[in-house]
Design a binder for these strands. Sequence first.
DNA 1: AGCACGCCGACT
DNA 2: GTCGGCGTGCTC
Length: 736
Amino acid sequence: MYAQVALPLPLKQLFSYSIPEDCTLETGMRVKVPFGRRTQIGVCIETVAQIENTKFRIKSIHEVIDTKPVIDCAMLELAKWMSQYYRCSLGEALETMVPSFLQQKSYSKTIAYLQIAAHEEIEQQIEQLQTKFPLQARVLKLVREFDGELTAKSICNRLGISRSAIKTLLKKELLCERFEEQNINPFDEIEVEKVEKPQLSREQQSIVNNLLPVMREQRFFPALVHGVTGSGKTEIYMRCIEEVVDNKRAAIVLVPEIALTPQTVTRFKQRFANVAVLHSELTNAQRNFQWQNILQNKADVIIGPRSALFAPVSNLGLIVVDEEHEPSFKQQNTPRYNARDSAVKRAQISDIPIILGSATPALESYYNTDTDKYNLFALHQRVGDKKLPHVSVIDMKEECRDHKKFVYFSRILLNDLRAALDKGQQAILFLNRRGFATSLTCPQCGYNAKCDNCNIALTYHKKHHTAICHYCNYDYIPPKSCPVCSCPAILYAGAGTQKIEMMLKKIFPENNIVRMDSDTMVGKGKYEDVLSRFGKGEIDILLGTQMIAKGLDFPNVTLVGIISADTALQVPDFRAAERTFQLIVQVAGRSGRGEVAGKVIVQTYHPDHYAIQTAIHQDYHSFLKYEMGQRKDIGYPPFAKLLRVLIQGEKEQLVIDESLRISRCLRQDKYAKNIQILGPAPAPIDRIKNRYRHHLIIKCQSVQLSMHFSVFLDRIMEDSHKSLRVSLDVDPISLV
DNA sequence: AGCACGCCGACT
DNA sequence: GTCGGCGTGCTC
Ligand SMILES: [Zn+2]
Ligand SMILES: [Zn+2]
């Protein structure tokens, strides 16, 4: 007997092995196999009696790892679909579905936090390493700042580097490890009292009445629930999940990573006894623990981000995708899958219902209700007749003119902040930019400090007096004078959260203001701690980035300020308007969740932009009508399927040559007249980490065409020069 | 992706 | 002379 084995490598073919006589092997079991001169763990895709192709010297399987399959038929079918649709190998698709199962590592029982070994000499050590080993110096600086709070994994993620620098620092004994027993089930700590289900509004009741029969029938039924913020979408999910759980089945709830807050988890734990929470921060051992629980049908509800879609639930009865429009559901590395669309596929394979929910559905999803691929259910009113918050748009051009100087805060925002704080109420201020100043500019010649490795403006961070590139994380000493014209007065222009925090603390010295962004939220428990203090009223103003835009529900928050609504608008992407609309509606939804009516202040330099004007009134349909018209005119999704080829390399000429070659090949295809090829052209960010970036965007009028060309491109890309990184993105979300 | 082999420049 | 850079090719 022989086995066809998929390996977690970027190799599209399966590999054949002979099965030792004494082994029983079934599809979906893992095997340890010899591969070149190393061993690999793979998944058995099928067993066959004979192999026709005898070109290879067939090796024998070392060991069958499982006694029963870790991948069932449905999951294997999903993996096959993913590998075909998103053009990755079957092994890569399987690896994202069963993380750590295909790695030859054992799970450690402890977590290692990194510490500085010798504090006295640390400054000079950093100094010494700076020139020869800048990576190691950066690691030391980070550990110095958060001594004993970071794991090797989190440092690698933050600095975007590999483990090697940390390894050498440990070897040199400049760093040491502190081992801590890990809590195998971290979310178990959230203890809650069960609460009674709330009364449904008439609107909610009618939707639930429509959905419950489908939950009982257990057939493929894709529903899009569109409801304004505060209209009680969650309660609709809850009722449907209850129905499914009562029938001894389980549900998966996907939420965007940033919405996976303790509050969100609590809300589900209040209603369901067996809630499993998956999270990207879990260690392998912790994830494995949840995985085993789910495999044994011990979890009724599984909540998690993107990857939770692959929870190995054998008795799956429902999938819910909350905030369905969120870009974080799309993975930005191989396999570049969209968890929302893959969830629909999983529901289809398992023949179960799926609910997509959003206050601001993606245009693609709404379009799918027009073409009857999805069923639309709309909630127009907020529960308990709570009014939508009152939104004011402030024209910052006018504001600056009246002040006769550049200002970050409008008078109305400051007055309303003062008024809310005086009444003992709380406020949330939102700005989606980290750091202190967003650019270092020369007032005389217009010079703009850029990263040496990327074509990106540096952001000034006050804390360490460094200018940081947010794309490669490299830090620079800010120039004292202009390197071009020697002008000594460099402008620290543009505001990030650090600058706003500083200014707020000056204006409101009596109040407690806390900044929440990825620079301050380092170390375990920080995030939960701030949220709980905010909930208790110990914090007056919470200032933050994306992190505070979702999943937070604080009744005493009566004012929400968007410092600049223009950040998303400036991104060179055809979805910029959609993102801006979604952001304003989401952030505004944080206001007025209690008894007191909420207020929202939106500061912008484009007060007349349709995305902002429609967002003020939460007028999704007017926005939709306008935006759909635009997309139709320029032939973008949902009226076309997109493919994007990104070519990256250190030698720009090679990158250009390759992009031209791919473009030429495309134009020679017999269906070429049915597609539109944009580019090749430099990507909006044309250099990152010393790699030049050029791309091609292909617009296809049908799924069939996009499938044809994704397969075609895959074949063309095999001939790419080895020094280049050429990647294909099917249904891209970001074109940067 | 790894990991070998192999071919060239710059060091003791 | 060798050490080490990375370009190329292969993995059942
Ligand atoms: Zn950079
Ligand atoms: Zn200058």
